[in-house]
């Protein structure tokens, strides 16, 4: 029999979906700014593997010559990005959701098992509550990253008034590099996140919109009396474990 199982509280769904367009706008306006001094690349022993970013990329997204516009958007949406993040963290702290989200002492070992399972190397599903160990690590890391973006952002936005933040980030240059690298991190996170969501299927995705999952549960208590149903229950019990 189908059962409704509550999964994501409204506040978490809300902040998740509000963050999505805001982060997109922040990344886009960040590109408009970065273009004006696009000095980063991955260069090893004098060989440049990637230059951030190739010309076709800029042309494709209409990035060039829009620095002032980029700054104006960036310095408006930074408020929403920050406030939404603060709201999310406060909610998880007050509601106790953080217990399901923060990695615990088993998480790092289990995350490895999750990875092996996801890559079809290992058959057994690692134990989990709402989130598996890899999810705990990923969803906590993304919050730490968001916090890092705000800190490094402030460090390059107001390096005089927040000189101590700039110092904490290892200086103006390093702060700008971190700020950039975190953005690349979001894009990588996003790609993996989308693949995982597709693989996890409709029930999982729906929960991020409607809040619940539908589970198959053993039938009502009255039927347990017949031995046949008891057997069924056992079988079902094994399945869900």
């Amino acid at each position: 029999m189908k059962v409704i199982q509550e999964k994501h509280p409204l506040a978490i769904r809300w902040t998740h979906w509000v963050n999505f367009p805001i982060l997109m706008i922040m990344i886009w306006s960040g590109l408009l700014i970065y273009w004006a001094n696009d000095i980063y690349s991955i260069t090893i022993f004098g060989y440049t593997f990637v230059h951030f970013f190739p010309d076709w990329f800029y042309q494709w997204l209409h990035i060039p010559q829009r620095l002032a516009e980029g700054m104006a958007f960036h310095f408006l949406f930074m408020w929403f990005f920050t406030l939404n993040g603060i709201f999310y963290v406060l909610y998880t702290l007050i509601s106790g959701e953080w217990r399901l989200l923060l990695p615990n002492r088993h998480s790092f070992k289990e995350a490895w098992q999750v990875l092996l399972h996801d890559l079809h190397i290992r058959k057994m599903v690692p134990p989990q509550k709402k989130y598996n160990a890899a999810q705990r690590i990923a969803y906590t890391a993304i919050i730490v990253m968001g916090f890092g973006s705000v800190i490094t952002g402030l460090a390059i936005y107001k390096p005089v008034q927040f000189y101590w933040l700039t110092w904490l980030c290892g200086g103006y240059h390093l702060a700008r590099i971190f700020h950039f690298a975190l953005t690349i991190g979001y894009v990588l996170f996003f790609i993996i996140h989308i693949v995982q969501v597709i693989l996890a299927g409709w029930n999982n995705f729906r929960a991020v919109v409607s809040g619940f999952e539908v589970k198959e549960e053993p039938a009502a208590v009255i039927e347990i009396r017949t031995p046949v149903v008891v057997k069924q229950k056992k079988a079902n019990g094994k399945k869900t474990k």
Binding site: M1, K2, V3, I4, W17, R206, V209, S210, G211, F212, V214, A219, A220, I222, E223
Partner: peptide
């Protein structure tokens, strides 16, 4: 009789799922 009551229950849940889906996806 038992079966029909279980079916009824199933139907009620089905309805509830549909209703909640409709509301949340509309809002979304």
């Amino acid at each position: 009789k038992k079966l029909s009551s279980a079916q009824l229950q199933e139907l009620a849940i089905e309805k509830k799922i549909k209703r909640r889906n409709f509301i949340s996806f509309s809002a979304f």
